[in-house]
């Protein structure tokens, strides 16, 4: 499972595929104030990125993968 859903935080690891976007979308809709940790993420299907951008959910950690971080950081400045 590329995303582990904790109480208030979704932790993404390795490649997050296109199907995960639907789950992520639903989880972020369930309750406000939830955040996302991308530290262990190596790839993110853009559908997931659209969910993150539309939700405005805080990203607590950018990917450790420098290349992915470079693509995402201008859009997802880490908060909190």
């Amino acid at each position: 499972m590329p995303i582990r859903f904790l109480k208030r935080k979704a932790v993404c690891t390795e490649g997050v595929d296109v199907e995960a976007a639907e789950t992520l979308h639903g989880w972020l809709l369930e309750a406000p104030g939830r955040s996302v940790d991308l530290a262990g993420c190596t790839h993110l299907h853009p559908a997931n990125l659209q969910v993150l951008l539309a939700s405005g959910a805080p990203v607590t950690a950018l990917p450790a993968d420098a290349d992915l971080a470079a693509w995402l950081s201008p859009l997802l400045a880490p908060k909190g």
């Binding site: 296109v18 976007a21 639907e22 979308h25 972020l28 809709l29 853009p46 559908a47 997931n48 990125l49 659209q50 969910v51 951008l53 539309a54 939700s55 470079a70 693509w71 995402l72 201008p74 859009l75």
Partner: peptide, 23 residues
């Protein structure tokens, strides 16, 4: 070099179609 160009006018999350690419 590369970058993602994203729109800023996202609909409310509930109305988002995550599978319609806008990037």
């Amino acid at each position: 070099w590369g970058r993602i160009v994203a729109p800023t006018d996202w609909p409310p999350l509930a109305e988002l179609d995550a599978y319609a690419n806008r990037l």
